[in-house]
Amino acid sequence: MRTSISVPTQLRSVATALAASLPDFYSVSEPEDAAGLVVLDGSGNWVAAAAEKLSAGRHNLLVHAPGPVDPGEVDTLAARTSTIVLSEPFAGNPVLKNLPQDIPFGAVSSTALAAPETPVERALLEQIRSLRAAGFTDLAVENAQITATGALLTGEARHEQRLVRVRALVTRTSAVTPHHVLRAYSPEHVLTVTLPDPATAAPGTATLVGPDGERILPTDYESAHRRTWRLAHESPREAASLRDFADDLRVLGSIS
């Protein structure tokens, strides 16, 4: 079944392109009343916008690139609905769904290069989110250095039942397209994950180096947003949790 979607003006070209790559699933429609899915811009106060839509009876919502907002408001929103889909630029990359979870990682490093117009706070949130999507949760930041153009964090997270040392570096630059590189270390393995510019379908990559050589994990030429939009139609239950998002916002709040 094809779902008609309504999008704000500033996301129209993005949404049109995404819908064009999923023509059996979506069509961009006007007006909003006729839409089966309402797309919200995550760059503003998307929580308030989502609450407003819910109150207006619009229950199928998708937030495109959700940015920092008040975590308490996200909790409140989560208590009202479970049908909001978060379409995240890095955390939604398909490569993160195929990572090995049975390796006893002891440390992970994350490097994020963000676009010059991206606020450091948003870049940090996206980095925390991609760490969570890679299985590194419950981040507790111990030291944070923030400048106008970058950030350097050290702390601890949980991977499976194990505590893992974490370090994260963020820089804003126009030199290269935005991307993340995660590298996780166990006594015998090094896992390197690259998350490419979410504006492209360049694949995320994951490479596992171990005692027996090197293994390239399955690669998928699908952008994070397309994957999320596709799943929102195919299996909406796989959507990222609002409560996890609120938890990650609290981590961000503990830093900035």
Binding site: A107, S109, T111, L113, P116, Q145, T147, A148, T149, G150, A151, L152, R167, L169, T171, R172, T173, S174, A175, V176, R183, Y185, P187, E188, H189, V190, T192, V209, G210, P211, G213, E214
Partner: peptide, 28 residues
């Protein structure tokens, strides 16, 4: 205003990964 991360790890894997990276506003 420059942040520096200096890290090193030796462990019994096989592949050397030895990198230096500097990022400015317009160059990497």
């Amino acid at each position: 205003q420059t942040l520096v991360e200096v890290s090193g790890l030796m462990q019994p894997h096989w592949k050397p990964l030895w990198e230096l990276e500097a990022v400015s506003a317009e160059e990497v």
